[in-house]
Nucleic acid binder design. Structure first.
Length: 286
DNA sequence: CACTTGACCTGTCCGC
DNA sequence: TGCGGACAGGTCAAGT
């Protein structure tokens, strides 16, 4: 699931829930999900206080009093579920229902805090990971990433410069490339290209200056709208913290094959671009 | 060098 | 109902 809006939603919730709490215990049931040694987690994660929760691209960072940062990636199916000390599952301070049995058989990491609350990491496909890196190494860890699309340094000029390094690919491949823009995934790529009225398979090189401007604007518009909606979720329980985002209802083309285009009412088409399911309007997008 | 494809895993859905 | 195959929101390494 998680692209920038979903990860940002989870970040905000977790920041309020975890800030100032100390890690009491860390249990890992699948060690392939750890990209740093378990012993490092025992010495630099356990016993440390979580000072804040931040985000870069689709990664979450738990910034620790030990001078280390836990860097988490949810990939396709990773979930973080917080359980308060009474055993209730909580989002943003409000108890929630609807999360199927947590912990469950896909709970591969459990963090117990000293106040008896817990953070569970579930991941059906086991693509997600946790790393632990010294804070001063973060710039190197993120060195390959392009600009944050919702930050001030994501200007048209900056976007153009990063895009032009992928002149020969499709524009969809380019905006999915995290070194061009950080945080866009398959859903928001299709949504942004629809708003910009550009076909996903167009070569980057063929884009006019105006089209690049439209795409830049569209990316910001779509991501902002999705963050406000708390992201997208596919069913009642899979947003990262157990509550569903509402962007799913607002989506324009993604997952709408055969449905009428919101602009011209012609049916939305589905093809494959860069090996990914791709939805677009064959009339509105050129 | 730039770009595309396969691999990593498991679950679900669709057609026969 | 069972079974095989395609597909799923991400990203690498390996291949062309």
């Amino acid at each position: 699931m998680p692209e920038l809006p979903e990860v940002e939603t989870i970040r905000g919730d977790l920041h309020h829930l975890l800030r100032g709490k100390r890690v009491a215990n860390f249990v890992v049931k699948k060690k392939n999900l750890l990209k740093s040694p378990r012993t490092l987690f025992r010495t630099k994660f356990v016993g440390a206080t979580i000072q804040r929760v931040t985000r870069r691209a689709k990664m979450l960072c738990l910034e620790l009093s030990s001078g280390y940062v836990a860097v988490l990636h949810l990939k396709m199916t990773g979930q973080l579920v917080y359980q308060n000390r009474q055993g209730r599952l909580v989002v943003g301070g409000h108890p929630i229902g609807g999360v199927a049995g947590v912990p469950n058989r896909y709970t591969y990491i459990t963090v117990r805090l000293t106040d008896k609350s817990k953070l569970f990491f579930n991941d059906v496909r086991q693509f997600g990971y946790w790393r632990l890196v010294p804070r001063q190494d973060l710039p190197a860890v993120f060195a390959h990433l392009g600009p944050e699309p919702l930050s001030a340094d994501f200007t048209v000029q900056n976007f153009q410069a990063h895009l032009s390094r992928r002149n020969r690919t499709s524009v969809k491949a380019a905006i999915l490339d995290q070194s061009v823009v950080a945080g866009i995934g398959n859903i928001y790529a299709d949504e942004s290209l629809f708003v910009a009225k550009i076909r996903p398979g167009r070569r980057v090189k063929s884009l006019s200056r105006v089209e690049v401007q439209r795409l830049h604007r569209a990316i910001r518009y779509v991501l902002q709208k999705a963050v406000k909606a708390r992201g997208t979720s596919f069913n009642s329980y899979v947003d990262g913290l157990g509550r569903s985002g509402t962007y799913w209802d607002k989506r324009l083309v993604y997952g709408r094959k055969g449905e009428p285009c919101p602009r011209c009412r012609r049916p939305i088409l589905k093809t494959v671009v860069v090996g990914r399911g791709t939805h677009y309007c064959g009339y509105c997008q050129r």
